[in-house]
């Protein structure tokens, strides 16, 4: 029985009337909010067609499409750093050898406890003082990749820890060494558990690429700034860009949910859904 059904079942006439009244009040309140927003846009002249015309030009759309492509390139670059490094860190943290476990733990905790923006600033302002001055793409992608690696390491580790202990013990019983057991038995199963969570993490990576605005890498946000400098249609441009981000991320989230329900059916014993177990500390920015 689901929570929704437990909380309220078919309501009687009195409750039905109350629900109807509150429904009407809340509809009025929601409509009021939209009306207020519309009025603010209207009264300040921001709804004027001239303020939106530039955004609807095919050339602007092509420009934004290219910017979205660059956002994708930055996200892919960060994933290419974050996935292998995250896996390495997870293996390190799960290791029985303190010499691997402690450094891996320290790196994971450090990068999970520090804002991405601070690391981007280190790449922008501190490292050039030592003659390390990569292209803006890398100044954006490496910090995002490092922070993603720390989060992904925890996702991988949670996946491994979610497996029954018997899996590792059975592998040992048939004579596999520790690394063999991990490679052939533990990891393939853990991967199947965490794939949806890994896909869900892509949302965070895409969000982080908006820091292109800070490093001047021409992804969506930075391209928006360039557009605004040319057209002056500030709120229109940034609203459109914000909506693009939301749509892209909703598509990724839906994909993760879909994968989760498909894989959950294939997992032994039905398997529990994993998306909820994502350690979400860095999700907010």
């Amino acid at each position: 029985m689901s929570m929704q059904h437990a909380l309220f079942d078919t309501v009687g006439p009195k409750a039905r009337r109350r629900v109807a009244i509150v429904t009407v009040i809340s509809l009025v309140a929601i409509a009021g909010l939209f009306a207020l927003a519309y009025y603010q846009f209207y009264a300040s002249g921001q709804l004027a067609p001239s303020k939106w015309r530039e955004l609807l030009q095919p050339s602007t759309m092509r420009y934004l499409a290219r910017a979205l492509g660059n956002t994708g390139l930055a996200a892919l670059g960060a994933a290419a750093i974050g996935l292998p490094l995250g896996l390495l860190l997870a293996v390190g943290r799960l290791s029985h050898h303190a010499w691997f476990r402690w450094p891996a733990t320290a790196v994971i905790e450090a990068f999970r406890a520090v804002p991405v923006l601070l690391i981007i600033y280190i790449f922008m302002f501190a490292l050039p003082q030592y003659g390390i001055n990569p292209d803006v793409y890398w100044k954006l992608v490496i910090p995002i990749g490092l922070c993603a690696a720390a989060t992904l390491a925890e996702v991988f580790r949670a996946g491994v820890l979610a497996l029954p202990r018997g899996q590792g013990e059975a592998a040992a019983a048939v004579g596999m060494t520790g690394p063999q057991a991990f490679r052939l038995v533990i990891f393939p199963q853990a991967l199947r558990v965490v794939v949806p969570a890994l896909v869900a993490q892509a949302v965070i990576v895409v969000k982080d690429t908006a820091f292109g605005y800070v490093v001047s890498y021409s992804e969506l946000m930075q391209s928006g700034r360039v557009l605004v400098a040319n057209t002056g249609d500030l709120i229109q441009t940034y609203l459109v860009i914000t909506v693009i981000y939301v749509i892209v991320n909703i598509i990724i989230s839906r994909l993760a949910q879909r994968l989760d329900s498909v894989l959950a059916r294939k997992r032994a014993g039905g398997g529990r859904r994993f998306t909820a177990l994502i350690p979400g500390r860095s999700a907010i920015q």
Binding site: Q40, F41, A43, S44, Q46, V203, V206, K207, D208, T209, A210, F211, Y213, V214, L220, M221, G224, L234, I235, Y238, L239, I241, T242, Y245, V246, N249, I250, S253, A283, I284, Q285
Partner: peptide, 20 residues
């Protein structure tokens, strides 16, 4: 949940003054 805070921040801080 799906909006990058940077873009929301820009809309709130620089965008809202445009609509008074």
């Amino acid at each position: 949940r799906n909006v990058p805070l940077v873009s929301l921040l820009i809309v709130v801080v620089y965008g809202l003054p445009e609509i008074n």
